[in-house]
Design a protein around this nucleic acid. Structure first.
Lengths: 224, 224
DNA sequence: GTCTATATGTAGATAGAC
DNA sequence: GTCTATCTACATATAGAC
């Protein structure tokens, strides 16, 4: 992934308002198409058609397919990280920290924006692609791993008897379950019959993960 | 997915021994390449090179890219299903059924073959692709969902107070966590430091999921 | 910055000799 | 059944006019 490690922007003159709007349209279209078809299934032409722009414009703003993909993933990552860290801070100030409140701070902000905004739902599919495919490990490391650390630290304090390895495993399990929730609600419905509300399913997930981490035989450090 | 729903074989004359060997080589190569690069990233030429066969032969035995993919996924699915159902029967006969033993019967057979045989590890990556991408929902339904039902039934009996919806959700969470374990061990290691043994991580997973399923859960009025 | 036209490569698929 | 040669389509990318 050499290309993806290059800086996303080489500093030039400040772009015009119109140019920024075009670039936003390009990234919006790229987000939609990459989310729907993955990196290999998506084509520049497809993205161009979605953006209502000529093919050349996609290359001009995207700087090649791989860099365009990287930019598309990175665009919302900072916002997402901020939402999560803010939620974690709020949880810390709001009272006793528990495994459930930490997991809620991690999951709920992302979940909530996908409820309000369809483009964030697309972004969730994109994140699932990045997390699944080993080719994008560098992008995942850059965009998502840093945010994970404060949460890992909080969980480590709440579960002092667990090995770091076991905790890391359960966190990875939790994140993959979360992405499954964001991307495969239809599948849950197919197996279980008429679906529950999305909010209920988020509660199911948080309970599942926190119980998985603590377990009935271990002492819960606090009460919600 | 019209093509994938077509029967995989239209009955012809029995193929020669040599032809069967060639077809096996084709499917082996397809498995490797599809697992590594996904459906869109893989090319027929790439598969041909891996198989040491000319391009035309891949088409002859594969019947087009989509049918080849379908065949590749289906080939090991029956074996996998049998391993799992046998393990479930053995667990039933072996003593008291618990959530842990049911999950073990589901996870461990697949996990074990990936330990013994690298081609099964490739197959695990392939299964992850199929489970992730909505395009292959039909293939997943055909190859994997039927096996899921006896396990769902066993879990339903063990957790009678849970709604079917909640159970379905936790099963989907568990399966995605399992696939994460099979495909992203490196990632667990990256977050948690020097990794535990694979067997330990399977135990972590089974404990995580069974604890996640038991304990207080969402219940619904009117649901048995 | 934007758009048109085009260069260059490679994809999936097949026809027909062996 | 196996392999060669080839068809057609479309991919990424760029050069250069506006």
């Amino acid at each position: 992934m050499t290309l993806s490690e290059l800086p996303l922007q080489t500093r030039k003159r400040a772009p015009s308002k119109r140019a920024l709007a075009t670039k936003a349209r390009v990234l919006d279209a790229a987000e939609t198409v990459f989310a729907a078809k993955g990196f290999d299934g998506a084509t520049i032409r497809d993205i161009a058609a979605h953006a209502g722009e000529p093919v050349g414009t996609i290359h001009h703003h995207g700087g090649g397919k791989e860099r365009l993909f990287h930019q598309t993933v990175a665009r919302r990552a900072a916002t997402l990280s901020e939402l999560r860290l803010t939620a974690l801070e709020a949880a810390k100030e709001g009272g006793v920290l528990t495994v459930e409140t930490v997991l809620t701070a991690f999951f709920k902000p992302f979940f909530d924006v996908t409820q309000d905004d369809p483009s964030w739902r697309n972004y969730a599919r994109l994140v699932a692609h990045v997390s699944t495919d080993v080719r994008w490990a560098d992008i995942a490391k850059e965009c998502f791993d840093p945010t994970l650390e404060p949460f890992m630290d909080a969980l480590t304090k709440l579960l002092p008897n667990q090995s770091r390895q076991n905790l890391a495993a359960t966190v990875v399990f939790s994140v993959s379950a979360f992405l499954a929730l964001l991307t495969s609600r239809d599948r849950i419905g197919a197996i279980g019959g008429t679906g529950a509300s999305e909010a209920e399913e988020l509660q199911d997930l948080i309970r599942f993960c926190s119980q998985g981490m603590t377990g009935p035989t271990r002492q819960r450090p606090g009460v919600t």
